[in-house]
């Protein structure tokens, strides 16, 4: 079976737009609508956030959306139910992003199996360390044809970046600067040096830049240094504007792309 992430990067090496949203936000059953609207507006890859009560790597916007999503009743089981027919409607690559504890309680094996069944292509679990992944879970993820996407930061040493590159097969999530999600300081000069350093390493996996990407300018700037960029907090904020979900999504995505 082909992996849609791999296929995507074979087709498109530049200017790729990936968008994150928290499942269960603004309303419990918005998941499918958001995915289909994002695709319709020309997004290339979608990260579906599985809300967690204590999201350590996230800033206030995604924390707040997670709190609302949990209050709305979102769980991993519910999310899989919502996604069970998604592959009849779209072939856009889908990545699930969340924290390890809820996945552990659901059962990692059962999680991988269900994810594969509904047509998920990749998984991001920021607090699952590389070593534990390699020793305990890699075989399982590969068996279910799931790309395990890892983060790197400006502080990640070259040797570790190479190690991460050797254990993954989707893309590398390049955190733009030392920060939690949702900081909008722009991409500092320091970050540019880091992007160039990583580009010069000739990794086997493409890089996608995330954290702090929030408008047309930061998106374009990030795309100069990697295959594409990820927008999370700014999109979650846009979903809270007045107006319909469809309008908000179209307005926001067009503001990035045009």
């Amino acid at each position: 079976m082909r992996n849609r992430i791999k296929h995507l990067f074979e087709q498109k090496q530049k200017g790729l737009l990936s968008v994150y949203f928290t499942a269960g936000f603004p309303s419990l059953n918005d998941t499918e609508t958001i995915i289909l609207e994002l695709e319709k507006n020309g997004v290339d890859l979608i990260e579906v956030g599985m809300p967690f009560s204590d999201p350590l790597a996230d800033g206030p916007t995604i924390q707040a959306s997670s709190t609302v999503a949990l209050r709305n009743g979102m769980t991993i089981s519910t999310l899989f139910d919502q996604l069970k027919d998604i592959r009849k409607k779209t072939q856009i690559p889908l990545v699930l992003m969340g924290y390890l504890n809820p996945v552990m309680q659901y059962g990692v094996e059962r999680f991988c199996q269900r994810a594969a069944e509904v047509g998920i292509d990749g998984i991001i679990l920021p607090d699952l360390p590389l070593r534990e992944y390699v020793e305990e879970y890699k075989e399982l993820f590969e068996k279910h044809n799931l790309s395990k996407v890892f983060l790197i930061t400006p502080q990640t040493p070259e040797e570790r970046i190479r190690e991460i590159d050797s254990h993954t097969n989707g893309f590398i999530y390049m955190v733009s600067s030392a920060s939690t999600t949702g900081k909008t300081l722009g991409l500092a000069e320091q970050s540019q040096a880091y992007f160039q350093r990583v580009a010069g390493m000739q990794l086997q996996n493409p890089g996608v830049i995330g954290f702090g990407i929030h408008d047309k300018e930061t998106f374009a700037s990030a795309c100069n240094h990697a295959s594409g960029a990820i927008i999370g907090s700014a999109f979650v904020k846009a979903l809270q504007e007045e107006g319909s979900l469809q309008q908000n999504i179209a307005t926001f995505i067009q503001s990035i792309k045009n």
């Binding site: 350590l56 949990l70 089981s77 504890n101 809820p102 309680q105």
Partner: peptide, 20 residues
């Protein structure tokens, strides 16, 4: 029950869905 909090695997008060 067995879970992850603040970077450590330990006993943790949580819901069935793994929310703290």
């Amino acid at each position: 029950k067995d879970g992850i909090i603040h970077g450590s695997r330990t006993l943790l008060m949580q819901t069935e869905d793994g929310q703290v």
